[in-house]
Design a protein around this nucleic acid. Structure first.
Length: 309
DNA sequence: GTACTTGTTGAACG
DNA sequence: TCGTTCAACAAGTA
């Protein structure tokens, strides 16, 4: 599942490849995906028509990110807001004219990620391809197996801002405003578990299940502790761990999604540095005791009971 | 067939 | 009213 580092990585890849390109045509196979965010479940034909009409012929002028949201900006102040949720992925393939003679999976094939790309999905489009943008020099596909994600069109930047969607989001973990002091103050009145706070988006954004467990392990903090019970020193350690891990993950992820050929390697890169996530029952890399798995807010949580107090 | 997984959030809870 | 908890979304995997 893409967390902030993967989305940031995807943003950079898209920026490199689609910026300046015009959308020649758009195909929407699943109206639900373009019909709204979150709980809006009613697929609207009008929204689909607006999406296609509004975007056809427009040029990409910027690719931005807020938390795990991608903001694709187009000429005439038009915007696409995209969230990959668990299984969304954008894949860009240059057209044959641009990449002369290639067979499936050739190193010359440019692909961007999100959710890790399955080998079985290396043929595009496939049954999980729900939106297709034909660009001047290639094709941009949106795939999503579980369809939790969304790709929503806004006719103006203002119409996106009007929804106030970003208003209650917390700080970006890599923003200079995300300081240890801010973090400490934000946790003072919070009674819920520190893991729940990290998973929530109102204090710090973009830290999902994986990096929450990894950060708490690195800071040696038990995920079940209430946020307000943490000492200032512990919060400083946790702050440092979050920033370091997210930075590191962007760096490692940066080399992992360039081509299909790197796929297997990329998975290794992504998972290689995990110390607790997905390692329940294995030995703690620090003390050798067995890592334990519990549920916090219906989310799998792995930690070392002897290291994390 | 059944349980489990995942990010985010509106709804329900106390 | 407010802070906190939880179910729901979808579909693949074990």
């Amino acid at each position: 599942m893409p967390e902030l580092p993967e989305v940031e990585n995807l943003r950079r890849g898209l920026e490199k490849n689609i910026l300046g390109q015009k959308i020649k045509s758009v195909a929407v196979n699943k109206p639900k995906l373009v019909s709204g965010k979150g709980n809006i479940r009613v697929a609207s034909i009008k929204k689909t028509n607006d999406f296609i009409k509004g975007l056809t012929g427009e040029k990409f002028i910027a690719v931005e990110r807020r938390a795990k949201n991608l903001i694709l900006r187009l000429a005439h102040d038009k915007v696409i807001l995209a969230h990959l949720k668990m299984t969304g992925q954008f894949v860009y393939l240059p057209s044959r004219k641009v990449t002369a003679r290639r067979s499936k999976g050739d190193a010359g094939t440019k692909v961007m990620g999100g959710h890790p790309i399955e080998i079985s999905e290396s043929i595009l489009p496939n049954k999980h391809t729900h939106i297709i943008f034909e660009l001047e020099k290639g094709t941009l596909y949106y795939n999503d197996t579980r369809m939790f994600g969304y790709v929503v069109y806004y006719p103006t930047l203002k119409s996106l801002e009007r929804e106030n969607y970003f208003a209650k989001l917390g700080k970006e973990p890599l923003d200079k405003n995300f300081t240890a002091k801010y973090f400490f103050e934000s946790l003072q009145n919070k009674k819920s578990k520190i893991k729940s706070i990290l998973l929530g988006q109102d204090v710090v954004v973009g830290v999902g299940n994986i990096y929450t467990d990894e950060s708490l392990f690195e800071a040696r903090i038990n995920p079940t502790r209430s946020a307000s019970s943490l000492t200032e020193a512990e919060i400083q350690k946790l702050h440092k761990a979050i920033v370091r891990i997210i930075r590191r993950a962007i760096l490692v992820g940066g080399s992992s999604v360039a081509t299909y050929r790197l796929l297997d390697e990329s998975r290794g890169n992504y998972a290689r540095e995990h110390k607790v996530y997905g390692k329940s029952g294995e030995k703690c890399s620090n003390c050798g005791n067995i890592l334990k798995k519990i549920l916090i807010q219906t989310r799998t949580t792995v930690f070392c009971p002897s290291c994390q107090k």
